[in-house]
């Protein structure tokens, strides 16, 4: 039994809405415990609509979302419980900070779950330890922190609910390389500590190649592919047809093959590329 099942999910927005929303149609997929799943697709392909269904922020027009085999909308009054089990970190999450202190802001989620006293305190301090929010920040105002630290605190605010599945929408958007590394480390640390399933929406194929076990490709609200990262990136033509692409290093290797250099197709990361080329140079010298 998969941890999270999406069954024939369709969502259409009313035509009268003044805003442009991306609908999804007839999506079915299973997400297992502990997987890291990447979601890719161009803007408007339905990525944000899909992820907002997984934690019950949107209600399916048709179809079901099953968490541990139970329809999350079985009892609409209990939907808030689902949101603490399936955490969602929005793009630029630092814009949702509002409390007077970092501590209070991180405690907001667990408090909404009904926790208080020692239990609440333990949760907040534990998550701060796991993802490296410094003790000295706890009594500061979140608005006095640097951009990267604000994001760390905002992510902690969702992680403090200890969701089994945590979804990130473009978690590294607007950060410099150091900030990006920090966020990736936070995600990995949380996963190692809790064994949670991680879902990441991103535009960067290079990041996806490094991070994701499986890739979910959306196009115009439909599920285009859902397979291992290697399999998805082996379908370069199919990705290009829907306005996506393979990682840059894979494209370099394709170009090398065009130039008559015999290199494999399944190279998606720099590490692998260096390894392959080293072997190749070694063969030649030998």
């Amino acid at each position: 039994m998969a941890l999270l099942q999406v069954k024939n999910l369709t969502h259409s927005y009313g035509g009268s809405s003044p805003f442009v929303h991306d609908a999804v149609s007839n999506i079915s997929l299973d997400i297992e415990k502990g997987e890291i799943i990447g979601i890719i697709g161009h803007t408007g392909s339905g990525k944000s609509t899909l992820v907002q269904h997984l934690n019950g922020l949107l209600k399916p027009t048709e179809g079901q979302i099953l968490l541990e085999d139970k329809d999350i909308w079985e009892n609409p009054k209990e939907i808030r419980k689902v949101r603490s089990k399936v955490g969602l970190v929005f793009q630029y999450p630092e814009y949702q900070l509002f409390e007077e202190t970092v501590y209070a802001d991180i405690a907001f989620g667990p408090k909404n779950m009904g926790l208080s006293g020692n239990e609440l305190d333990k949760r907040v301090r534990d998550i701060c330890r796991i993802i490296g929010v410094k003790d000295e920040y706890l009594n500061k105002s979140p608005f006095d922190l640097s951009g990267g630290e604000k994001r760390r605190v905002a992510i902690a605010g969702v992680m403090a609910m200890y969701p089994q599945i945590i979804i990130f929408d473009e978690p590294t958007a607007g950060l410099d390389p150091a900030g990006r590394e920090t966020v990736i480390k936070i995600i990995n640390d949380y996963r190692r500590e809790t064994g949670a399933t991680v879902i990441v929406v991103s535009h960067s194929m290079e990041d996806m190649a490094m991070l994701a076990d499986k890739l979910l490709v959306l196009n115009d609200g439909k599920l285009e592919m859902f397979d291992s990262t290697e399999k998805v990136f082996s379908n370069g033509d199919r990705l290009r047809k829907i306005g996506l692409n393979v990682p840059i290093v894979t494209r370099v290797f394709a170009q090398l093959r065009n130039l008559g250099v015999d290199v494999p197709e399944d190279v998606f990361t720099v590490e692998k590329a260096v390894e392959v080329l080293k072997k190749k140079a070694g063969e030649k010298n030998a």
Binding site: D176, P177, I248, V249, V270, A273, V274, K278
Partner: peptide, 20 residues
Amino acid sequence: VGLDVPQTTELLYMLQKNGF
């Protein structure tokens, strides 16, 4: 200095570091 390096440059750099 914390700059973003494209993957092509990263690849060439790693090759250089590996003795190419």
